[in-house]
Design a protein around this nucleic acid. Structure first.
Lengths: 192, 192
DNA sequence: AATTTTGCGAGACACTATGTCTGTATAGAA
DNA sequence: TTCTATACAGACATAGTGTCTCGCAAAATT
C-alpha cells in the first residue's frame, strides 16, 4: 500500500497529497476534530510519518487544505451555473438552489464550519469570501434590473444568502431544501 | 492566584469551574482550537494540572461545557423576551432581533460553530436545538394568528431563522444587523 | 545504459502533552 | 476536635511532535 507511485513525479505528489487530505477528512469524521493526529493521518494515508511532514507541517494545515479543495470544487460548479442563459433573477435562483443542494449533500460535521474555528480563519475565510463575491455579483446584476430590494447593500444580501442556505445541511428532504430556497429568495424581495 | 477559595465548597467548585471554562475559551481565541492543551488551560486558570483532570477529562469537554454555558445564557435572555406583552409577530420580531444582536456581539471565532465539529456534536446540538425549539414555538403562535406563510413547517422556518441571523456575526454595524433582521422577517412572510 | 536527482521509509532523538497515582497540607462540615 | 473534601507538587509510563539521519528505489537527465 505504501507504494504509491504514478508515472511522473508531479502526478505522484498530487496523488499522495490527495490521499493525505482524504485521510485527514476521514479521521475528522470518525474520531472528531480534536483527536486527529499527524501519526494517524500518515498511517491512514499509507505513507511514513516523516513523509507526511514533507507535505504538511501540522494537522490544521491538512484540514485547511482539504477545506479549500472542497470550496474550490463548489465554486467551479457555481460559476459554471452563473454563465448559463436567462435573466439575472433566474440565474441567481439557479445558483442559490445549487448551493443549497451542495450544503444538503455535503457530509455531516460541516465541511464549511471549519473557517471560524481553525484560526487559520483569516486565510480560509478567503475561500469563503470567493463564494460571497460570486453571490454578490449576481445580486448586483439582479438589483440593476430592479428585481431586488434596494435598501440593503449587495454584500449583506450575499452574506444573508450564504448563511440562510447553510440551513439546508440539516434538512430532511430535497423538498425541504426547495422550500428553504423559496424562503430565502422571498427575503431578497424576489418574486419567484 | 492559585488560592481560589470561596466561603463554601460548592461555591468554590463553581468558581474554579468557571475559571477553567474562561481559560479554555481565552486559549481558543488567541491560539486556535487545535493548539489548546490541558496543561495550558490549567496554567491559565491558575490551578494544578491534576486538579483540572478532576473537573474535566479532556479539552473537548471543557470547550463543550463552555459552549453550553453560553447557549444557556442566550436562552435565558430570549425566553425572558418571549414572555413580554404584544402580539405573536411583535414578540417573534423582538426575539429574532435579540438573537441577531447576540450573534453580532459574540466574540470572534464563533461561539456556536463548535457544534458541528466537536464530535460531541450530538450532545451540543441538543443545546442548539433548544434555541430552534424556542423559535419554533413563536413561529407556531404567529402562524396561528395568520401572520406568517403557512406553506412551510415551523421547524424549517426556525432553522432558517437561526442560520440566516447567524450572518449577523460578520456584519459591520448594528444598522446592518437591523437590515438583516428585516430581510429575514420578509422571508418568513411577515410584514414589518 | 549510466548517472544524477528526487522522494520514500524506517529508525532515532529530544521534547511536550497525556492520564493516572501518590503523599502531604489545608480549609469547610460534622 | 474529628472527619471529609480539595488542592498541590511531583513522579511515572505512554503517546504525539518535529527534526534529522540513513539507505533504497524510482524518475529524470545525459
Amino acid at each position: 500500500m505504501p507504494k504509491l507511485w504514478s508515472e511522473t513525479i508531479d502526478t505522484h505528489r498530487r496523488t499522495v497529497r490527495d490521499a493525505i487530505l482524504e485521510a485527514g477528512w476521514a479521521l475528522v469524521s470518525e474520531r472528531g476534530l480534536m483527536s486527529v493526529t499527524m501519526t494517524q493521518i500518515a498511517e491512514k494515508a499509507g505513507i511514513g510519518r516523516a513523509t507526511l511532514y514533507k507535505y504538511f507541517p501540522d494537522v490544521e494545515t491538512v484540514l485547511a487544505a482539504q477545506h479549500e479543495r472542497h470550496v474550490a470544487a463548489h465554486l467551479e460548479q457555481l460559476t459554471a451555473l452563473r454563465e448559463q442563459p436567462g435573466g439575472p433573477a433566474q440565474r441567481l435562483k439557479a445558483v442559490l438552489e445549487r448551493y443549497a443542494l451542495i450544503c444538503y449533500h455535503r457530509e455531516k460535521h460541516g465541511t464549511e464550519e471549519f473557517a471560524a474555528l481553525l484560526h487559520r480563519g483569516e486565510h480560509v475565510a478567503h475561500a469563503e469570501q470567493q463564494l460571497t463575491a460570486l453571490f454578490e455579483e449576481l445580486l448586483v446584476e439582479a438589483a440593476a434590473s430592479g428585481e431586488l430590494r434596494d435598501d440593503v447593500p449587495a454584500e449583506e444580501l450575499a452574506s444573508y444568502c450564504l448563511h440562510a442556505l447553510a440551513a439546508a445541511g440539516g434538512l430532511p428532504t430535497e423538498q425541504a431544501v426547495a422550500r428553504l430556497v423559496s424562503i430565502t429568495l422571498t427575503g431578497l424581495g424576489l418574486s419567484v
